[in-house]
Design a protein around this nucleic acid. Structure first.
Lengths: 141, 141
DNA sequence: TATTGTTATACTCTATAACTATA
DNA sequence: TATAGTTATAGAGTATAACAATA
């Protein structure tokens, strides 16, 4: 008797543990730095951008009111700041402070170290293959 | 000049969007069924197991008190139930009700449909490759 | 009128601490 | 004494609804 599980389901079953494992690593790094997973993502987005509140909310799939709270708390910690938009007086732009920039670089290194036990199970050739397959699946055509 | 980004960092950069994309899909499915991501995971675990509260908490990386709340709310919805362990009078086992079993099957199908736009970007041969690489990276030796 | 952002409110998730019952 | 689970409490994340200011 042949395998009864469809291939795309096998793929999902292989993907899910990686997703939860990576999320756990991110949560751990967040916890070590007193940041939630969402705030970690905000820091990552602000690394090379200065978006408006509404843009941030859209990108993260959150409501504007939720963003206000998230940014309030990160601002109180001195990691980022608000500045009014020059183009639209209603809009507010968010950007990293120096302290925030320094932190986000450290977070990036921590993530690499944290995932190393996983990524290093593959040799360079396999890592290239996996990177390419993930890129293709993500669909940037 | 050669590429300055190390291979394992490129791999991580390819992995992160997949992780967040998959998590977003899971959150959406949860929201459509009035379940949080954590409760979705609980349902998945209970699909073929009847663990104790402490086992669930350990597996999910949560405190026992957090589990009590999660299980309380899911129990109120009729999705799962508690039963005392026969081996240890202190312990409580958790299992899906019929309604919970029916729901978890529907959730599984929803996940496949929800991720299909992503997985179907790869042909069967690539899907097999990706599944194998993910399995190897997850490290089940 | 529509959009940008904030505030008020309510619920869920999570951890810590204190507790009861059993091993 | 140690472990299993619950309860009380508090802080963070999230959504909805109502609001002020600007486009």
């Amino acid at each position: 008797m042949k395998n009864a599980i469809p291939l795309h389901v096998e793929l999902i079953d292989a993907l899910i543990p990686i997703v939860f494992g990576t999320t756990a690593a991110l949560n751990k790094i967040g916890a070590e730095n007193d940041l939630s997973l969402t705030q970690l993502r905000v820091m990552g987005i602000l690394r090379d951008r200065q978006p408006r509140m509404a843009e941030l909310a859209d990108y993260l799939g959150l409501k504007k009111s939720t963003m206000s709270g998230l940014i309030d708390r990160a601002e109180k910690k001195g990691l980022l700041a608000r500045t009014p938009s020059l183009e639209d007086s209603r809009a507010i732009e968010v950007f990293l402070t120096q302290e925030g920039q320094a932190l986000v670089e450290r977070l990036h290194l921590q993530l690499q170290e944290s995932l190393a036990p996983m990524t290093s199970r593959l040799n360079p050739s396999e890592q290239r293959q996996l990177r390419d397959l993930l890129d293709r699946m993500h669909g940037h055509d």
